[in-house]
Amino acid sequence: MTVTSELNAPAGADKTAFAGLRRLFFQNESLRGLVLLTPTLVILSITVIVPFLLMGAMSLWTQIGFDYTDDWSFRNYGIILTEPLYTTLLLRSLGMSMAATLVTVMLAYPMAYFLAFHVQKNKLIWLIIITLPFWTSYLLRVFAWRVVLGYEGVINTGLMEIGLISEPLSFLLYSKSAVIITLAHAWAAFALLPIYVSLEKIDKSVLEASADLGEGPVMRFLRVILPLSMPGVIAGTFLMFIPTVGDYVTAALVGGPDSRMIGNLIELQFGTVDNWPMGAALAITMIISITMVGLLFMVLSRLLKRWVAA
């Protein structure tokens, strides 16, 4: 009997300590929040924050031959800002991304609108169809556009078949427009889904109220639907714009010499050119530029929303 009770004693003590922790966990809201956030925070700091800081540090080094000097300087940034090649590529990337984002948002909005307001049944099936391209690999989708846009591709042979053109159009593939079309298609769902969600959330009686208060369909859209779906449009724009600026696979596969993007250059710095500090500086510059464009976009959309609704 004594043996058993001795064995049981520490187990009982453990149990109460555990119960105490348990109580603390369920009573303290901020502790609970921290505990729940911990896995994310750990993963984020290991995979994002630390590499980001390392890259920031590396961008301040200088490559000499096969070695780095680790004296800190902004030399790389100076080169990026003065050398026309870098600024051209950066501005071109931002411009092409903006174009692709604009095209996608403009095309996605009507689709999302249709889904939110006119599809009554089987919305899930429509959503699956729209996200279907995401079930295949990104590379596969880019290659598919080569087949469509190529010199002997679907469009060229089709147009020649019906006699609209006599020889293949060469500007279709390996051009800026090819990159923009491919990006727009590849990222469509990222723009569409947030817009759909924000449209779906709009209370239908608010639309009836605006009709009741004397507004026809166009003004109803501009004064009520558009401002209320703006959060979705902004989210969709960012979700598409941010990753496409740095995209390099698309430009490498369907782009021509005039459509190389900043991502291609960064890839070169880390690869063939083997100038990691310069690559890091370019990446940081790109991140800062995206942030600035994003902030500008947010300010503009807020102003636009206020102006349209009042």
């Binding site: 209370d203 009686s205 608010v206 009836e208 109220a209 605006s210 009709a211 009741d212 208060l213 004397g214 507004e215 026809g216 009520v224 401002p227 209320l228 929303k305 609704a309």
Partner: peptide
């Protein structure tokens, strides 16, 4: 509706949230 000389107070009020 937008051309009728009537106005409505909706059941859930339908106040424009923005």
């Amino acid at each position: 509706p937008h051309q009728r000389p009537v106005n409505m107070v909706f059941q859930n009020y339908a106040i424009f949230p923005h």
